[in-house]
Nucleic acid binder design. Structure first.
Length: 402
RNA sequence: GGAUCGGUGCCCGAGUGGUUAAUGGGGGCGGACUGUAAAUCCGCUGGCUACGCCUACGUUGGUUCAAAUCCAACCCGGUCCA
């Protein structure tokens, strides 16, 4: 690997095709970067099905930013068409079809969340496209032509399909269309490079095939590692609950990252921060703190992050930090007299009041650092609570306000 | 279209008429320990401002004092045949 483009290689992405010795700009991305006389078009697709982006996604956007900073054009594709059709994984029940409004709202939220990462301001560095623009125009003849570019055998070679086929899980025909649609996106925006997680290799390759089919120069694929979640085991995902969302408040972001497992910490530094690995502090604990502080700073600014750090340590030690990084809960909507377990659930600390009861019984709930023993403890008026901090476990806090 | 097996709580998986909100495992959450980690041990794990009430075993009906368990139809998946 050459050193001409250090920004290209952080995180150790898999690039394909990759022939380091080749001078051919179609076989060697560095050659393409060197020889091209125009900014390259770097495609990254997102599915506006949910509303939360987490640190796992942020890796791709960070890489995209690297390209932007090197003068290239980020082409972010919102998969609104795909999202409106249904479930591309076939994993569980069919995903609810999203309406146009929902998709638009989700897309909006996404862009807002990645704002701290991408360069939205420099002219020519960012292009946001919706794939309904071209996919909704595909009629049956064109769709058939797309389908005819691949064989069932090729499709079944794909990891996900292969497993499911072997296990006898249902695979619906239209699922075969997803890789093709994603590939067609590359054709539509004339991508030079497509970013994706390593699980996207198949789809990116399909994009290359389709581009060739349509007489374009095939894109490069650039695959970033999939981030392991905060549990240290499975990939970061919202449904597994092991994620850190980009829109989370500074305190919860800091708190989660401060317990990043030792096995993950170097990877997190490499993929999620700009810090150099050989300048990290020695102690494992210090590393966790630095990581948490660093990432919280990226999304909330240095000041908030430091505040979160301070508050986190105070709160955990049974203190009563009242800084404004502790999320507020307005008692205006609560009804008094109120029982504690009701407050624990109403404030969002627990999802249900039943759960709140259990947590209290399990000794997990504190008010201003004092453990609450009785489930049915009653508060007559908001005045008894305002300014106090309610705590669940070690990391979840809420500060009562009028 | 035919034959056959199956659909249980977040997931896997017991249970084949009655203390069954449903054994067990995983995951998750909490507690102890610790470095706010890992490992280990322990507890909890349907909902409800709650000594009670409500909703649950693919769906809808039926038999019964009583069903996740029996019957019927339907829906969905697997396998084999066409």
């Amino acid at each position: 690997m050459s050193n001409s483009f250090p920004w290209l290689h952080w995180g150790n992405p898999e690039i394909f095709p990759n022939q380091p010795e080749s001078k051919n700009p179609n076989e060697n991305l560095e050659q393409r970067l060197t020889q091209s006389n125009r900014p390259l078009r770097i495609k990254l697709g997102i599915d506006p099905t949910g509303t939360d982006i987490h640190l796992g996604h942020s890796i791709l956007f960070r890489k995209l930013r690297s390209f932007q900073d090197a003068g290239h054009t980020a082409v972010v594709i919102i998969g609104d068409f795909t999202a409106r059709i249904g479930d591309p994984t076939g994993k569980s029940e069919v995903r609810r079809q999203l309406t146009e409004e929902q998709v638009a709202a989700n897309a909006e939220t996404y862009l807002k969340q990645v704002r701290p990462i991408l360069d939205f301001d420099t002219p020519g560095r960012l292009e946001v496209r919706y794939n309904s623009e071209w996919l909704s125009k595909l009629d049956l003849p064109k769709t058939l032509a797309l389908l005819a570019t691949m064989t069932v055998g090729q499709m079944l070679a794909k990891e996900g399909f292969a497993e499911r086929y072997k296990q006898g899980t249902a695979i619906y025909l239209h699922e075969f269309l997803y890789p093709l649609m994603q590939g067609y996106d590359s054709v539509a925006v004339q991508a030079d490079v497509e970013l994706g997680g390593t699980d996207q290799k198949f789809n990116l390759a399909v994009g290359r095939d389709l581009q060739k089919h349509f007489g374009q120069t095939p894109q490069f694929g650039l695959l970033m590692p999939i981030l392991i979640g905060t549990d240290g085991v499975q990939k970061m995902s919202k449904s597994l609950g092991n994620y850190v969302g980009l829109s989370e408040d500074a305190l919860s972001m800091y708190s989660k990252l401060e317990k990043t497992p030792d096995t993950l910490i170097l990877q997190y530094f490499e993929l999620l921060t700009d810090l150099s690995l050989d300048q990290l502090p020695e102690g494992a604990r210090d590393r966790q703190k630095l990581l948490a502080l660093e990432i919280a700073s990226q999304y909330h600014g240095r000041e908030k992050a430091l505040e979160a750090q301070k508050a986190a340590s105070e709160l955990v030690q049974g203190g009563t930090s009242k800084t404004d990084v502790v999320p507020e809960f307005s008692l205006g909507s609560a009804q008094f007299p109120a029982k504690v377990f009701y407050l624990v659930s109403a404030s969002g600390l627990c999802k249900t009041s039943s759960d709140a009861r259990r947590q209290i019984q399990g000794g997990a709930v504190r008010l201003d650092g004092n453990k609450i023993e009785q489930v049915d403890l009653i508060f007559e008026s908001p005045d008894d609570l305002i300014g106090k901090v309610l705590q669940l476990g070690k990391n979840k806090f809420v500060r009562f306000v009028p």
